[in-house]
Design a protein around this nucleic acid. Structure first.
Lengths: 111, 111
DNA sequence: TCGTTATATTACATAAATTGAATATGAGGC
DNA sequence: GCCTCATATTCAATTTATGTAATATAACGA
């Protein structure tokens, strides 16, 4: 959807595709725009973490973290791996990482 | 907030700053995660557009577009410029552009 | 099997975001 | 001043998101 500049003679079919992609992008962005989920993703950039670890890292309750992870899981952003009683989460691909890098650059580096 | 990897001995003050930045990033992402606003921003990447032009481009009603622009304006993402009766909007800085480039790459290029 | 730890899910209350309709403002032309 | 075009704002209705508390499940060890 973004940059390719939508020119006047874009066909209806092309426009539909663009809107479809905008919807995906929109869901993805909504998923990462939650403060807690954003922090979780940040922590996962440095590697797998268990739910308990994440609870401590972002100072949130078990149920909250679990719900946030659940949302990220449904959205396909993270993948769980069970090891005995504990469940470790990791980033599913580099999409979140790519975006977080920019966000970090924009909000944590420049003034 | 993201990438720098939050290490165990991060001080409380540092953590506060991180949380602050996460909040800003989170607001920004919320602002651009709305499908209509996302499309508006995309169109603005190629240059200033009037409200009426945007209405046509994203096939939305006047009030809706105006509200979405209002949100983007309050968030500091776009800047209005009046010329007679019409008002032209443009991106306030390259933050949205930088993020949209990545989003475009992730959702409209790769399969 | 029972108890415990780790995580997930559900149900409910509340807050925030979004939409649509109606109305308001501001600029220009007559 | 009055009318019209372009845009903004307001308000109520609805939807969606979020947090909390309670409960459920799954795995392990005694």
């Amino acid at each position: 959807m973004p940059l390719p500049v939508i020119i006047k003679d874009t066909t209806p079919t092309e426009l539909d595709e663009i809107v479809e992609k905008a919807k995906s992008a929109s869901s993805f962005l909504k998923a990462i725009s939650h403060e807690g989920r954003l922090m979780i993703l940040c922590h996962l950039v440095s590697g797998e973490k268990s739910v308990t670890e994440l609870e401590d890292l972002i100072s949130a309750r078990q149920a909250a973290v679990s719900q946030q992870l659940s949302r990220l899981r449904l959205e396909g952003l993270v993948i769980p791996r069970r090891d005995g009683k504990t469940i470790f989460y990791r980033l599913a691909d580099d999409k979140p990482k790519r975006v977080l890098e920019i966000i970090y650059d924009l909000f944590c580096q420049e003034n």
